[in-house]
Amino acid sequence: MDMALAERMLELVRAVPPGRVTTYGDIAAAAGSRSPRLAGRVLAEMSDESVPWYRVVRADGTPAPHLRDEQTGRLAEEGVRVRDGRVDLRKLRWRW
């Protein structure tokens, strides 16, 4: 894995403010990659408490299935509503 690319991805996630979300694809593109899956892998394997991983959702606004309960709970604590299983990306998407 390109460690410089992975660190750029982690820094981008750290930059997403509370109450906002971004997508795996947004993270990948902003870091210089074409792979949303790589962004997911980086978050799964390399993130720590300083990385608000739960602010990253899929392209359709849904949380990661295996983390749904924890992710939606953390987002709710920041005021992000998940309706019908999705975050409204038109209103809450963070872009650089």
Rank of each mutant, 00 (worst) to 15 (best):
2 D>A: 10
3 M>L: 11
4 A>R: 09
4 A>Q: 06
5 L>D: 10
5 L>G: 01
6 A>H: 07
10 L>D: 02
10 L>A: 03
11 E>H: 13
11 E>I: 11
13 V>L: 05
14 R>G: 06
18 P>K: 04
19 G>H: 04
23 T>K: 13
25 G>M: 09
26 D>P: 07
26 D>Y: 12
26 D>I: 05
27 I>C: 06
28 A>K: 00
30 A>T: 11
31 A>K: 05
33 S>N: 07
34 R>M: 10
35 S>G: 03
36 P>T: 05
36 P>A: 13
37 R>N: 10
38 L>V: 12
40 G>R: 05
42 V>G: 03
44 A>P: 01
44 A>G: 12
45 E>V: 02
46 M>I: 00
48 D>I: 06
49 E>Q: 04
49 E>C: 13
49 E>P: 05
52 P>Y: 03
52 P>S: 02
53 W>G: 08
55 R>T: 01
56 V>M: 12
56 V>N: 04
58 R>W: 14
60 D>G: 06
60 D>Y: 09
64 A>Y: 15
65 P>E: 10
65 P>F: 01
65 P>Y: 13
66 H>P: 15
67 L>H: 07
67 L>Q: 02
70 E>A: 14
73 G>H: 11
73 G>S: 12
75 L>W: 06
75 L>F: 02
78 E>G: 09
78 E>D: 03
79 G>N: 08
80 V>M: 12
80 V>A: 12
80 V>I: 05
82 V>Q: 03
83 R>E: 02
84 D>E: 09
86 R>M: 00
86 R>D: 00
87 V>P: 04
87 V>S: 08
89 L>H: 09
89 L>D: 14
91 K>M: 10
91 K>Q: 14
91 K>Y: 05
92 L>S: 05
92 L>V: 09
93 R>C: 02
93 R>S: 14
93 R>N: 02
95 R>D: 12
96 W>N: 15
